[in-house]
Design a protein around this nucleic acid. Structure first.
Length: 855
RNA sequence: GUCCGGAUGGCGGAAUGGUAGACGUAGGGGACUUAAAAUCCCCUGACCUUUGGGUCGUGUGGGUUCGAGUCCCACUCCGGACACCA
């Protein structure tokens, strides 16, 4: 009775070996070319690793190990995106500082990841909640502030009464909070906002050269939402007010039968007719109270009221009514639209409901009328422009408006500025102190004050309750601004973050001349000091992940976010892998920060992630998404315990294409474990020494060598194309072949181990050493293809009659085509057909196929 | 609604326009065994068959081609993203 493969002993041994020997330590320099492979770092949740994590991590690990074997200097790091709501909610419930819980979760994640045997350089581990890390997150924020890209504004933001916090647009899904699905409402609040729209053009342009999934690029293009059109002025009869609308369809201008303003439009109050004032005010109030859900989903039936005002058409001089409706967004364009019901579905629906006139000005290309017709066509009822194709009309009418001074070309984006503050505890504190106007002058007039270090050209101020405060950035020497201890992790009643509870921290005295800060002392600041109140907002979880790819390059660098020398060497990840759920938010924010850091000279690259890949979801065995409530969750720890880490890694890669959504299959895991067991028994005798089938000198027959080199070629190609499932099946084919041999070269067996090692590193390392390997298999040069060995004496030619296979020929590659056709005609199953009917055409594709086309 | 992706045996999936179903699972049969497990070998898309083979077969219907799972057009279903952005 032979022992089965003792995977837990073997895996434990090599995990320790790699760690102790620094096998996968990346070096910041040297002759080997750099290869940087990055995983989206995890949020260390309390529930531990789920089965999806090892999928992406194994893929990146295969690439890391493959490149080590190709002679690269590989950087494959890991870290923790550890700020965030769950740790804070835990703190609210238990009163324990979120750092303690976070640390425990990280320890669990680290241990679980280590048990998968990844070639990670753990000396570079980073943690976004570590003050040594968030010091530089704060520093980058201050740079954004310094360059006018961070500002404050009281604006209606999404307020979630349940979470007691403000949410960003993208955290609100269908009027519910993304986390927890709680209802949200609009509430004006002072917010820090990043001017990402200043980078809209760059963010769009930069996409072009990225090697990213098309769908992800498309999502970003759609999110940025650039459009070109015209701004057109409509004056209001009996008023000096001018309503400026944005349209991409200036060609339909003659079809405008009314204007619509958003309920938030600033001109409303001044233009509304007295008899309509009450109903407009009521409508505005109703719209303000509506949640996003109500304003979008339920608004399929459009609502609105007449303002009683009349606008004047800029070309025809006709007067048209002005309505207000919440189907017009206040935050896009100018918050007002010209309604062309004949050629816009929304305007059409609105006009039908409120019996507003509909005027056709674009005919279908064949002259027919269809309503609403939103595509291109021929202009009609458009005065001088009749008969023009709508595309040309767009330009012509645009030009006419410009000449009249009633319009100008305009570009609009769907992208909004990024609401960057959160009223939470467990995030990076915003390193800002608020002072009053008089005190602010003492700083802004003294360029030598340390507090002037990050002062923008235009001061950032905020007025509330008749009092204006000015934002003073902390000097870099005051970073990190560490989270103060608090007694309670709940936001204040007023919606301020728990930091507002840290009263001793909150009030500070600043010394403009020296740059010193100290807790406020006394009723008023002492001479030479300024009294200030600290900013209580913290940064969103996205902040830390906007630049972590840079921190791995020099995790301990103390003079900046990244050591310029390390940045020059590693640049950016050659390969970045993570879930498609980050297609827009993280990947857009990180590109924004990276582009900004490029602008200010911190990095020399313009884009952070030149090559991106999304691994697919792994579903439960029932084909549904894994969830506790369905009871179909597979725990990676259990799989490692029962089958080993190599089996888990191999299985997740064998399951199907890396980017596909695929269901788990426990029985197939058993199949992979069998594959490993077969390898073990093939390589070793009962005594644990190399099997007797191995011989030192060359002895392989031609088919064996051919299969070996075909396998080398396929595994290399498949790893490069991320087709890991087919690489593994090819290795199974090779093993099945080798098992049938009486004897085999030891070198062949070792090549097999090298080919498999990136996928199943533990067993390969063990067998490699038992077969005489002295240093790690990870650094043994990857096997090369010998194309001579793949050469065949005879080529196979398929023979078809009318496209159906009727036989095959084995011929020397240089045999003339005439001879091949002659032999093909003589094949018995071909001959039968040729006797009955005459040949119309003979096709010979060299080296592949012969086809006789019969009448 | 708009945009994108997909549909191949019982199941996961392979197939540079050239032998569809590699590899793995599951199933059937056999060997070994007192037995079971483990392991090894053979078979396994459907139908017909004189056992040589033949016909059909990659969601549906058309098309291009000597030849289509693969390319084109239309449709059905499934999945994903966006969703009043003027």
């Amino acid at each position: 009775m032979r022992d089965d493969y003792p995977f837990s002993i073997v895996e434990d041994r090599w995990q320790k070996f790699w760690e102790q020997n620094g096998t996968f330590a990346a070096r910041d320099g040297g002759a080997r070319p750099p290869y940087y492979v990055l995983d989206m770092f995890p949020y260390p949740s309390g529930t531990g690793l789920h089965i999806g994590h090892p999928e992406g991590y194994t893929a990146s690990d295969i690439l890391a190990r493959y490149h080590w074997a190709l002679g690269y200097n590989v950087l494959h790091p890991m870290g923790w995106d550890a700020f965030g709501l769950p740790a804070e909610q835990h703190a609210v419930q238990t009163g324990v500082h979120p750092a303690a819980n976070t640390e425990r979760n990280i320890a669990k994640f680290r241990s679980q990841i280590c048990h998968l045997g990844f070639a990670i350089d753990w000396r570079r581990e980073i943690n976004t909640t570590d003050p040594a890390y968030y010091r530089w997150t704060q520093w980058i924020f201050l740079q954004l502030f310094r360059h006018g890209l961070a500002y404050v504004d009281a604006r209606p933001v999404w307020w979630c009464p349940e979470l007691k916090t403000v949410l960003a647009n993208e955290e609100v899904v269908n009027g519910l909070s993304e986390r927890g699905n709680f209802p949200v409402e609009r509430r004006p609040m002072r917010q820090w906002i990043l001017r990402i729209t200043a980078y809209a053009e760059q963010l769009l342009a930069g996409l072009e050269d990225l090697d990213w999934p098309d769908s992800t690029k498309r999502q970003q293009v759609a999110w940025i939402g650039r459009s070109e059109g015209m701004e057109i002025d409509f004056s209001v009869a009996g008023s000096r007010e001018v309503i400026d609308v944005y349209t991409t369809r200036a060609d339909t201008l003659h079809g405008v039968t009314y204007l619509v303003l958003s309920p938030e439009h600033p001109a409303l109050a001044s233009i509304v007719a007295p008899e309509c004032a009450a109903s407009v005010a009521a409508y505005q109030k109703m719209a303000a109270a509506k949640s996003d859900l109500e304003r979008t989903d339920l608004a399929k039936d459009k609502s609105g009221v007449d303002t009683g005002a009349l606008a004047i058409h800029p070309l025809t001089g006709r007067t048209i009514p002005v309505w207000v409706s919440d189907y017009v967004l206040g935050s896009y364009g100018s918050g007002a639209v010209m309604a062309v019901p004949a050629h816009d579905v929304r305007d059409f629906a609105f006009a039908k409901k409120f019996f507003l006139p509909i005027e056709t000005v674009v005919l279908l290309p064949d002259g027919a009328v269809e309503l609403p017709h939103c595509g291109e066509g021929i202009l009609t009822n458009s005065g001088d422009f009749d008969g023009m194709p709508s595309k040309d009309g767009r330009v012509a009418i645009g030009n006419r408006l410009q000449k009249l001074g009633r319009g100008r070309p305009a570009v609009n984006y769907k992208l909004r500025d990024w609401v960057f503050s959160r009223q939470r505890y467990w995030g990076e504190p915003v390193p800002i102190v608020w002072v009053d106007g008089e005190d602010f002058l003492k700083i802004s007039c003294d360029q030598s004050s340390p507090f002037a270090e990050f002062l923008p050209d235009k001061p950032v101020s905020f007025s509330e309750g008749g009092k204006t405060s000015f934002a003073v950035p902390l000097p870099a020497s005051q970073l990190p601004l560490i989270l103060p201890p608090v007694d309670c992790y709940l936001p204040t009643e007023g919606g301020e973050s728990p930091l507002a509870r840290a009263s001793e921290w909150l009030a500070v005295d600043l010394h403009p001349a020296s740059g010193e800060l100290r807790p406020a002392q006394g009723e008023r600041a002492a001479d030479g000091w300024i009294r200030g109140r600290r900013e209580t907002n913290t940064m969103p979880q996205w902040a830390g992940s906007c630049w972590y790819h840079l921190r791995y390059l020099s995790p301990n660098f103390a003079a900046g976010p990244v050591d310029p020398a390390a940045e020059a060497f590693w640049k950016v990840p050659n390969f970045y892998i993570g879930g498609a759920e980050h297609a827009v938010l993280h990947l857009l924010y990180a590109r924004f920060w990276h582009q900004f850091l490029h602008t200010i000279g911190v990095v020399r690259t313009k884009e952070p992630y030149p090559r991106l890949f999304h691994q697919g979801l792994i579903l439960g065995e029932d084909g549904n998404k894994m969830s506790k409530s369905r009871g179909n969750v597979v725990n990676p720890d259990d799989v490692i315990a029962s089958h080993g880490a190599d089996a888990l890694r191999l299985f997740e890669m064998f399951l199907g294409p890396l980017d596909a959504v695929k269901p788990w299959d426990m029985r197939a895991v058993g199949g992979i474990a069998r594959f490993l067991k077969k390898i073990w028994r093939f390589f070793l005798n009962d005594d644990g020494r190399p099997s007797a089938v191995f011989v030192a000198e060359p002895c392989d027959d031609e088919p064996t060598q051919r299969l070996l080199h075909e396998t080398i070629a396929i595994v290399r190609r498949d790893i490069e194309q991320l087709h890991f499932n087919t690489a593994i099946s090819q290795l199974m084919i090779l093993l099945n072949h080798m098992q049938r041999l009486k004897k085999i070269e030891l070198a062949t067996g070792k090549i097999f181990l090298q080919l498999l090692a990136p996928f199943a590193p533990h067993i390969c390392e063990e067998l490699w050493h038992r077969c005489g390997g002295t240093s790690s298999i990870a650094h043994a040069p990857f096997p090369e293809v010998d194309s001579q060995k793949m050469h065949r004496e005879l080529g196979k030619i398929l023979v078809q009659v009318n496209g159906r296979i009727r036989g095959e020929l084995a011929v020397p590659p240089d045999l003339p085509s005439g001879e091949i056709l002659r032999q093909a005609r003589c094949l018995p199953r071909v001959e039968v057909h040729l006797m009955e009917r005459e040949i119309v055409k003979e096709i010979y594709v060299p080296g592949k196929v012969v086809n006789f086309v019969l009448r």
